[in-house]
Amino acid sequence: MKILVIGASGNVGRYVVDKLLEKGEKVVAAGTNLENLANLFKDRVDLVYLDLIAQDSFDQALEGVDRVFLMRPPHLGKPGNLYPFIDAMKAHGIQLVSFLSLMGVETNTIPPHHKIEKYIEATGIPYAHIRPGFFMQNLSGIHSTEIREKNQIFVPAGKSKTSFIDAADIGLSVATVLHQPDKFKNTAHTITGAEALDYYQVAEILSRVTGKGITYAKPGYLKYRRYYINKRGLDKKYVNVTVALYFMTRMGTAKHVSNEFFELTGKTPRSFEEFSRANLTCFI
């Protein structure tokens, strides 16, 4: 049987695919842009069209599949958007679904991930939730523009600390549980980097790696929100979600350091300095 990977071209999904292939699994990469998926994975995987809000695409995507990597696309803000697909997984007898959740969501009912986890569990589908900390790719991706152009980290996180984790390590964690569905049935795993850093420390690391004088701007919520909506032109709903996440970060929800990545994989998570050196071109 095969493993369906949703969001296969995304930050985490592409690593899930790669790590599953390394483990000898057969993979079906799902998405709405099959040309993009074909360019990314060549002939290493099967491809299938899947739109999580188009129920007529579900059966074909789930045919011949016994395990699923499920993530919530950023544009689907309501938990209920995913419920029909979860019901379809139940109807197809999926043996394990690994849902990309969020660190601390078991006690934090605000993010949509909380209700999605609960809905999966209520259906009786065997699950292995992966609850990562903040992605290192947030800095090499969405926030890299200010780092490159202004030598600034522009996020409203105050003095809070974050246990950043590389998306590649998240992908390995997901592949590990999907590769051993019986062992990890009905489990949840909080995975983080090996240390918690505040953004002043992140700026110091990036300054050392790039040779530039990078500072942490520490904007307030309103200034951050106006900038990303008006100057960067990002979708208002997306920016509002990031504001909420940084608000929770200031409450200390992102500083927890877990050893579960090592317990799952037997490997040490990548440090932020190692990540920065490997992705230097994103910051200069």
Rank of each mutant, 00 (worst) to 15 (best):
E195F: 04
G141H: 04
K78P: 00
Y15A: 12
G266Q: 04
V48N: 14
K2N: 14
P73W: 03
I229K: 12
Y119S: 07
E263D: 13
R44A: 13
K150G: 01
D169M: 00
P126V: 07
D182I: 14
N279Q: 11
P111Y: 12
T162C: 14
I94V: 15
V45L: 07
F135H: 07
G220A: 09
R208V: 05
V28Q: 07
L100F: 10
R131F: 00
N279S: 09
N138A: 08
G104P: 06
G220V: 07
F272I: 12
S9W: 01
R226N: 13
V202M: 05
A88R: 02
A88N: 05
V65R: 03
T190I: 02
Y224C: 03
E263L: 14
D198F: 10
D235H: 09
I142K: 01
G24K: 02
A88W: 01
T123N: 00
A29Q: 01
Y199D: 10
P74Y: 02
T145E: 13
E149N: 14
I170L: 06
L40S: 05
K237Y: 10
D18L: 03
I229P: 04
H129N: 13
K90V: 03
K212I: 06
S160V: 09
A29H: 00
P269W: 05
G233K: 06
D43V: 08
I116A: 12
T109Y: 09
R226S: 13
A54G: 02
R277S: 12
L245A: 15
K118G: 14
